[in-house]
Simulated assay, not measured.
Amino acid sequence: MATSLTLSKEELRDLTGYEQPSKQLAELHRRGFHRAYIGRHGLVLERAHYEAVCQGATEKAKPKVRPIIRTPAHA
């Protein structure tokens, strides 16, 4: 049997202990699954992200780019 790209509704329920997508999402985010989101047809958690987080992989935070604001020289 082929494995789907996303976790099933049953897998998400078993993983979080919740039926309601908003509660599932909050629980997943609390556990470090920050790429989970609520889509058109319910909660989405990519299997690759799930497996990576479970194996201890973390995404490196991108540095925040701050704009440089300069005042005009002729002002």
Rank of each mutant, 00 (worst) to 15 (best):
L45H: 06
A73S: 09
T6P: 01
G39I: 03
G17Y: 11
H49T: 13
I69A: 11
E27W: 00
A52G: 04
L45T: 12
A36E: 03
Y37V: 08
E59W: 15
S22L: 08
L7W: 00
K60V: 03
A61R: 13
G17W: 05
L25R: 00
A48F: 01
Y37T: 12
G39H: 05
M1G: 15
E11T: 09
P63V: 13
Q55G: 05
D14R: 12
Y37H: 12
K64Q: 12
K64I: 15
D14I: 04
H29T: 00
A2Y: 02
A52K: 15
H34W: 09
A36W: 03
G17S: 03
H41K: 14
A61I: 07
A61H: 14
D14W: 05
T6M: 05
Q24C: 04
R40F: 04
T16V: 02
H34P: 02
G56I: 03
P21W: 01
G39Y: 03
A26E: 00
E51T: 13
E19M: 08
K23D: 09
H34G: 02
L43M: 01
Y18V: 01
L15C: 09
E59V: 10
A75H: 06
A57V: 04
S8E: 09
L12F: 00
R40S: 08
L7Y: 05
K9P: 03
A73C: 04
T16I: 08
H74S: 06
H74Q: 09
A26R: 10
L15G: 09
R31K: 13
A2V: 12
I69W: 09
A36P: 02
F33S: 05
E11P: 01
Q20P: 00
L45G: 09
K64Y: 06
Q20R: 11
T71D: 11
A2I: 13
H49S: 15
Y50T: 12
T71A: 11
E51K: 14
R40C: 05
K23C: 04
L5T: 07
S8H: 00
G32R: 06
G17H: 07
A26N: 01
R66V: 15
L12R: 03
I38W: 06
H34F: 09
L12V: 00
A48V: 11
A2D: 13
R35N: 13
S4Y: 10
R13P: 01
E11C: 05
K62P: 04
R30M: 05
E46S: 07
T16Y: 06
K9V: 07
K60E: 15
T6Q: 04
G56S: 06
Q20E: 14
E46N: 14
G39N: 02
T3G: 03
V53N: 04
K23V: 01
Y50V: 13
I69S: 07
R47E: 11
E19Y: 14
G56K: 08
I68E: 13
E19T: 11
L25M: 02
R31W: 00
G17D: 05
H41V: 08
R30W: 03
T16L: 01
L45R: 04
H34D: 12
T71N: 10
P63C: 11
Q20I: 07
I38S: 10
Q24N: 10
H41S: 14
G56R: 08
